[in-house]
Amino acid sequence: MMWGKKAAGGALAVLLMATGTGLAGAGTAEAAGAKYTCTAVVHLDLGRPKATSSCKKSASGKPVTKHRVKLVCDVIRGRGNPHEIPWYLWGPWVKPGQKSTVMCGFSSFTRSWSVETK
């Protein structure tokens, strides 16, 4: 009788372990298929342009694993004959639940901003 209980207990453990690995695989497949809509916003922070990107889950979005903000600033150069030079800045790559932020330097203006995804 003792051998039968051990065999039944072992079979139950194998069944539960197989079910658990199947559920774990389903969770990663669902996360990989998640769709997001990403946006970028710009505002002034102590007189400097600051851009932030974020992503939210959306049924009409696209699959995103990482995102970052891209900010293009016009930097003013020269004293007698001032001219603008475009300066490209990128925030760090982050996961969809986090925010990516970057700031321009002083004496600069915002030309454009966008979100890059992969």
Results as ranks from 00 to 15, higher is better:
Ser54Ala: 04
Lys95Ile: 04
Thr110Val: 09
Thr19Asn: 12
Asn81Phe: 14
Gly61Asp: 07
Met103Arg: 11
Val115Ser: 04
Met2Val: 09
Lys99Ala: 05
Ala26Val: 10
Ser53Met: 02
Pro49Thr: 00
Glu116Gln: 11
Pro86Lys: 01
Val115Glu: 03
Ala13Thr: 00
Arg111Glu: 06
Ala11Gln: 07
Ala40Phe: 05
Gln98Cys: 03
Trp90Glu: 10
Leu71Ala: 01
Lys6Gln: 11
Thr110Ser: 06
Ala18His: 01
Lys118Leu: 10
Leu23Ile: 14
Thr52Lys: 04
Phe106Trp: 13
Ala24Cys: 10
Val64Asn: 11
Lys6Ser: 12
Thr65Gln: 15
Ala32Val: 11
Met2Lys: 14
Ala29Pro: 00
Val64Tyr: 13
Pro92Met: 00
Gly4His: 13
Cys73Leu: 00
Val69Leu: 03
Ala7Ser: 13
Ala40Lys: 04
Val64Pro: 14
Lys70Phe: 09
Trp93Arg: 06
Trp3Asn: 09
Gly47Leu: 04
His83Phe: 11
Ser114Ile: 02
Ala13Gln: 01
Arg48Gln: 07
Lys6Asn: 09
Trp113Cys: 02
Arg48Phe: 02
Thr65Leu: 13
Val72Cys: 05
Ala34Asp: 10
Lys57Ser: 15
Val102His: 00
Gly78Tyr: 02
Ala8Asp: 06
Thr101Asn: 04
Pro49Met: 01
Trp87Asp: 13
Met2Ile: 09
Gly27Tyr: 09
Leu12Phe: 03
Leu15Glu: 07
His43Trp: 14
Asp74His: 03
Lys57Asp: 12
Cys104Ala: 02
Gly27Thr: 13
Arg48Lys: 11
Thr65Cys: 07
Val69Asn: 02
Arg79Met: 09
Val14Thr: 12
Leu16Phe: 11
Val75Asp: 07
Ile76Cys: 03
Arg77Asn: 08
Phe109Asn: 15
Ser112Glu: 08
Met2Glu: 14
Gly80Ser: 11
Ser107Phe: 09
Gly20Ser: 15
Glu30Met: 15
Met2Tyr: 12
Phe109Tyr: 07
Arg68Ser: 00
Gly20Phe: 15
Gly47Asp: 04
Leu89Met: 05
Ala32Tyr: 08
Ala13Ser: 06
His67Ala: 05
Lys50Asp: 05
Lys118Asp: 13
Thr117Val: 10
Pro63Arg: 08
Lys118Pro: 09
Met2Pro: 08
Val75Trp: 01
Ser100His: 04
Val14Cys: 13
Leu46Ile: 05
Thr37Gly: 11
Ser114Asn: 07
Gly91Thr: 03
Gly27Lys: 14
Asp45Ala: 05
Val72Gln: 05
Ser114Met: 01
Tyr88Gly: 05
Pro63Phe: 02
Met103Cys: 11
Lys56Trp: 08
